[in-house]
Every structure is written in structure tokens, then in C-alpha cells.
Design a protein around this nucleic acid. Structure first.
Lengths: 267, 267
DNA sequence: TCCAGTTATCGTAGGGGCTACGGAAACCCT
DNA sequence: AGGGTTTCCGTAGCCCCTACGATAACTGGA
């Protein structure tokens, strides 16, 4: 199940997210053995390998060779540590910023965003455990917002943000699904297909054909022949295409395709 | 953050999900003080009021007036308890089954599904903490699958399941978002808008205008005037409409709207 | 040299959580 | 009344987060 985050103090977490150097590096006092980046990197490494729950304060500290309580010098709480880990990984997609090279059409730009996001959730499945409703307001998250919006210059401003949020929500949901899948596969040592196979008794022993005629009909027609992972992939590709088609259609000023989103590169 | 579930034994959880009465109610031995339904109901009540984490074995047992370990007579583990809670709540939507009355058009049938699902996540925000990649294979979950598929009779069988999964994934993601929102609002005693307001310093102190031209431009054009909750609602309505439009369009045999999905009621 | 002053390190302890194990309790039937 | 069976639950082990306070390590000035 998913951890959420408790309330965090914006006055503490924002400077951390942006790696604010408190005036000068502080010339007095005992010098630190670690940095915030060290702690975040250790947390990510453990979470990547064994899941977010394994990235406990004790485990992270052990990996860094310090006592558990030492971490609290660098990070206010475990929740804040997770938030830092998330923003770090979000930024790790290296989505093109202003001036950077990028694909020519807005569609390919969105597909780049989608691909990198899915890859990110595959590489860091623990991301799926973190809600993104109130995301970390750090450079990684803002870079995503900027990139997605920058691909939608041809959408009228009144509708542009709705389009961006629609795309972001859909892609994030699909990636989260994929990440949950990867995590379950690793933790249980069992693929999704194997999991379903192990539950074959459902159909013979518990499934009621009378109550589920549409499923039965589709089953007999071979509609479930593709495994659950393929189904999810199909649905993602299909849904994204429908959404992009719709946005494109709604952005055409009249009915022709001489202007508007259709294959318009970034200005 | 989100809890996931560990591996569960299908031979134990499936009979529980379907509330298998082990042959006869067992006439010998000490009679039980509770039922599985009691335990599940208590878990749901606590989770509804205080979140999934609060629904610990100790808290559930206390609410039922028994010792903690007593629960393990009814339920193999806390993970299994959560799975039972989920299937119970999924079934609680009471989506129309075969023969039950339902809206006339497939679109309205899908909207019924979407509305009830969102309402479910609002009423039981803890659902957002549970992955639905390997869902509980109980009556509640199957009822959902049957209903969604039953609305798509006009989609060609080869594409029907993809359409169903696309819709389900999108609606579930939106509902999960809404549930996370409700949970954060309750736990932090703070609305989403208030949360953003509290972080106003982001824009003055940390935000880099040079690096985020598209955001800045849209901000100045009033593109962010609607708060985050309204944006999410807009995106959900918009995305669902685009997906349903696309499915409808792809299901029209030719180009006219005399047959196909367009306003075709269930057979 | 030595001593504040300052910052980092971390041991202890308190409050929760899940659940394996095994003994006690409660009931039916003979 | 006694045996068989099922439920009930106290104990204890292991893990997690973090408040608090004592201690260590370093700088700069006297």
C-alpha cells in the first residue's frame, strides 16, 4: 500500500528542495561528514533496490556509515527526505528546457515526455507509492510543468492548462501503474501473468457465469487472450492517442489543418 | 505514501473474498464472537474516519472489543484484511448488473460508472493508498469489470477490452487523485488551495522566470486563475470526453452515425 | 596555547505496528 | 463428566520514527 506524506513546513523544505546554501558554507563549528545530496542519493539507491519501505532512516544511515539520528541534521523528517528523493528523480528525466534541442512536432515532444516518465517509474518503482497531488515544489517538478506547457503553444490560452493537466494526469497514472507492476514483480518474484495463472481456480470455482455475461462472451471471443500487461500497454497507447487527437482537433481554429497544433513545431 | 500488499495465498484469500462458508457453519467447538464481515466493516469504519494507517490490527480489534490476536482467526493478515475491505467497497457502488435498470445510452452508463467511482473514492479516501494493478478477485471487482464491458457492446470485440481498460484506468486514476486530495485535506486540516497559498514564497523567492517562460507567459495570461482542484476537475471532464469521443468515432462502422456506439442503448 | 562558541554526531528511550507461538477458555456431543 | 474442537488472547520479538540531551570536532580570538 501507499505511504503519503504528512504536513511539511514550507520554510524548511523549500530551501532544501532548491539546495539553498545558507549564506556562506559556515566556517565555524564541526564540519559535516555528509551533504543533503548524499542522503538523498542513499535513499534513492535503497528504494530502487528494495522499495520505499526499506529506505528507513536506519537503513539510509547505515549505508552512509553514520548513526540514524545523524540524518536529522540534514533532513527534517523522513517525509521530507522522500519529497527530496521525488524531486530529484523528477528532474532526472532531463526534459529539454528552454533553448534545448527537442523533437520537431508537439506530438513527438509529448511522446518524449511520456516515454521518459514511464522509464522513470520503471527505474524507480517506489515513486508509485507517493502521491503527486501536492507535489514537491522543487526544480524537478517545475521542469516538468514548464516542458509540458511549452509543447502546447498552439492551444488557446484559455484551454492550454486544462490540456496540460489532462496529459500530465493521464501519463502519470499510466506510469504509476507500470511502476506498481514492476514493484510487485520484483517483491513477489512473480510476473503479472504468473499471478493471474496462479489464480486460475477463480474461473472454475468462484466465477458466476450468469452474473457476468459480457465477460463470458468476450472471453469466448478471445477478447482476453492478450495478457494483463499487454492490455495495460494497449490501453495506455490508445488513451494517449485519443487525448492527443482530441486536443489537436479542438485547437484547429476553423476546420482546416493549415494552422493550429497539427504538426506545428515549437516557435 | 502508499502501502502496497505483500503476497497473499490465493487458496486462503479467494474463499474469504467470496465468503465461502466452510461446508456447514461448524457445529463443534467454541462459537465465534465475530464474523469476517464484522472485521471488514470495522476496518472500513476506522479507515474512513482516520485513514488506512489508523486501521491497524490493534485499533480494529479494540473497536470490536476483542484482543488484537483474535482478528487473526478471521483474517490471515492485515494485507488480506485490506484486500477484503477494498472488494467490499468496490461492490458497494452497486453498479447495475445484468437485467438491472440502467441509463439508456452507453455514454450515460459510463458516466454513471465514473460518478459512482469518484464518489466511492471521496467516501473512502484510503482506497487511494491501495494499488489496483493486482486487484482483489472478489465479487466487487468482477462486478465493475462486467458493468464496464456490458456498456461497450457496440465496440468490435477485438478492440472492446482495450476500450474498457482505457476507460477504467482513466476513471480510476482520476478518482484516486480525488481521494488523495480528500485525504490530504482531512489529515492536514488544509485545503489544496490553502496549501498552495502557504507556498506563495515559491514564486518570489525560488522560481526562476528565465527557466520557465511558458509557465510565466501562461501565468500572466491568467491561465492559472482556476485553482488546482478546479483544474483537476476540468482535466478529468475533458479527458473523459475526449476518450469517449474517440471510442465512439472508432466504433462507427462507416462514417455515418446510424449505427455503432452513437446513442445505442444496451441490447 | 587554550578556551569559548558553534555545529555535527549519535545513544537512549518512548510510542506504534505486525504477527508467531502456545496456553486458556468455551462449546458440542457422547 | 470428559474428550474433541474451535476460538480467544498474552507474551515477546523485531522494526519504524523521532524528541531530547550529552558529547565530539572544529574555528577564531585572547
Amino acid at each position: 500500500m501507499t505511504e503519503f506524506s504528512g504536513t511539511t513546513d514550507p520554510d524548511r523544505i523549500l530551501p532544501l528542495l532548491w539546495r539553498h546554501r545558507t549564506a556562506r558554507p559556515a566556517t565555524t563549528g564541526r564540519p559535516p561528514r555528509l551533504s543533503v545530496d548524499d542522503v538523498v542519493a542513499a535513499g534513492i539507491a535503497i528504494a530502487d533496490a528494495e522499495g520505499l519501505a526499506a529506505a528507513s532512516m536506519a537503513r539510509v544511515a547505515a549505508r552512509l556509515g553514520v548513526a540514524t539520528m545523524t540524518l536529522y541534521t540534514y533532513v527534517p523528517s523522513r517525509n521530507d527526505l522522500v519529497e527530496l528523493m521525488v524531486d530529484d528523480v523528477l528532474g532526472g528525466r532531463l526534459l529539454p528546457g528552454p533553448g534545448d534541442e527537442r523533437p520537431g512536432t508537439w506530438r513527438d515532444q509529448i511522446l518524449l515526455y511520456a516515454d521518459r516518465t514511464i522509464a522513470m517509474y520503471r527505474a524507480h518503482p517506489w515513486l508509485s507509492h507517493v502521491s503527486r497531488v501536492r507535489p514537491p515544489l522543487g526544480p524537478g517538478m517545475l521542469r516538468e510543468s514548464e516542458y509540458v506547457l511549452s509543447t502546447l503553444g498552439a492551444v488557446p490560452v484559455e484551454r492550454r492548462n486544462t490540456a496540460a493537466v489532462t496529459i500530465t494526469m493521464f501519463v502519470t497514472a499510466a506510469a504509476r501503474h507500470e511502476g506498481e507492476n514492476a514493484q510487485l514483480r520484483r517483491d513477489g518474484g512473480q510476473s503479472n501473468d504468473a499471478w493471474w495463472g496462479q489464480r486460475g481456480q477463480l474461473w472454475e470455482q468462484w466465477f458466476d457465469v450468469e452474473q457476468h455475461p459480457s465477460m463470458t462472451q468476450l472471453w469466448n471471443a478471445g477478447g482476453f487472450d492478450r495478457g494483463p500487461d499487454q492490455q495495460a500497454a494497449d490501453a495506455f497507447a490508445h488513451g494517449l492517442r485519443l487525448i492527443l487527437d482530441g486536443i489537436e482537433r479542438e485547437s484547429e481554429p476553423q476546420s482546416s489543418d493549415t494552422t493550429g497544433l497539427r504538426s506545428s513545431p515549437m516557435p
